[in-house]
């Protein structure tokens, strides 16, 4: 099994203050900490587990600037064999179909059985790149997969549906699966792996190297346009409990008891 796994570097904004920058089309990311997208971390683990069970290779694929190299090296340290990063300032990241086009161009001419992506990126949350990539490659797919069983040129993919139900579909390889979080327990990179990863191949490619023109994947040719970012007004009816942490706790406890909440 030769597997490609697509990884994206994203900021952790769960605790951070997010501010829109002057272009109104991006955010000020100078204070964010970045790491591999959560779902992609699970996709890397799944790819490595399949390789450990069946043999073959794992190739890591990323579209983005040089900052992503550390994340890519970590994926290599966990069991990836080699990596490709497509770095080109002309790529329009606000259109998932264009990102998919770039990733497809990098994979198309290679030998592969399986392509794994995350089912969503924590920053843009499109939930579209993986399935669009499958269409670009002309191969079948299954989205939101939380269990994978590979056998005889086929894969049984358990797709997560709403409400805890899942459906099992059988698809013919090569195929794209978009991986859902929780599918496995992602490993930590072993120290030895981290050392070895420095020696593994990480190819950096430009659009020209992939034979796609800027026109195909730039903002001008996109069929959608990001007009502007803004911070939504949060209308909260909440009573904010003030004070030192301990005071807040005490006040809340009193409200809970006296207000008949418990």
């Amino acid at each position: 099994m030769n597997t490609f796994v697509c990884v994206k570097r994203v900021p952790d904004t769960s605790e951070a203050e997010v501010k829109v920058d002057a272009t109104e089309k991006d955010v000020d990311s100078s204070k964010f900490s970045f790491d591999i997208n959560d779902a992609d971390n699970y996709a890397v683990e799944e790819a490595v587990q399949i390789k450990e069970a069946q043999g073959g290779t794992v190739q890591v694929l990323c579209c983005g600037p040089q900052d992503a190299d550390m994340m890519i090296r970590m994926a290599l340290a966990k069991g990836g064999d080699s990596a490709m990063r497509i770095d080109d300032p002309r790529i329009n990241f606000s259109d998932p179909l264009q990102v998919a086009k770039v990733l497809a161009a990098a994979i198309k001419e290679q030998e592969y059985d399986l392509v794994l992506t995350g089912c969503w990126a924590d920053d843009d949350g499109f939930m579209a790149v993986g399935v669009a990539l499958a269409e670009e490659l002309g191969i079948p797919h299954a989205a939101m997969v939380k269990k994978v069983e590979v056998e005889d040129g086929k894969v049984k993919a358990h797709r997560e549906l709403e409400g805890g139900i899942s459906e099992v579909v059988e698809i013919t390889l090569p195929a794209v699966l978009t991986i859902q979080t929780g599918i496995n327990e992602p490993r930590y990179a072993p120290i030895r792996g981290i050392r070895q990863a420095q020696k593994k191949e990480l190819k950096v490619l430009k659009l020209d190297d992939l034979g796609i023109s800027e026109e195909e994947v730039s903002e001008d040719s996109s069929l959608i346009e990001l007009k502007r970012f803004y911070i939504p007004e949060v209308e909260s009816k909440a009573e904010i409990i003030e004070g030192e942490p301990e005071e807040k706790a005490e006040k809340l406890a009193e409200k809970m008891v006296k207000g008949g909440l418990i």
């Binding site: 499109f126 939930m127 790149v129 993986g130 669009a132 499958a134 797919h141 989205a143 797709r159």
Partner: peptide, 24 residues
């Protein structure tokens, strides 16, 4: 729907028919 069904279908359809497409 931006649901298990919609996210599994819409992106591929958009690519094939070259439809302007926004998710979620």
């Amino acid at each position: 729907g931006h649901t298990a069904q919609g996210v599994d279908l819409a992106p591929a359809l958009a690519v094939e028919l070259k439809m302007p497409f926004v998710t979620d």
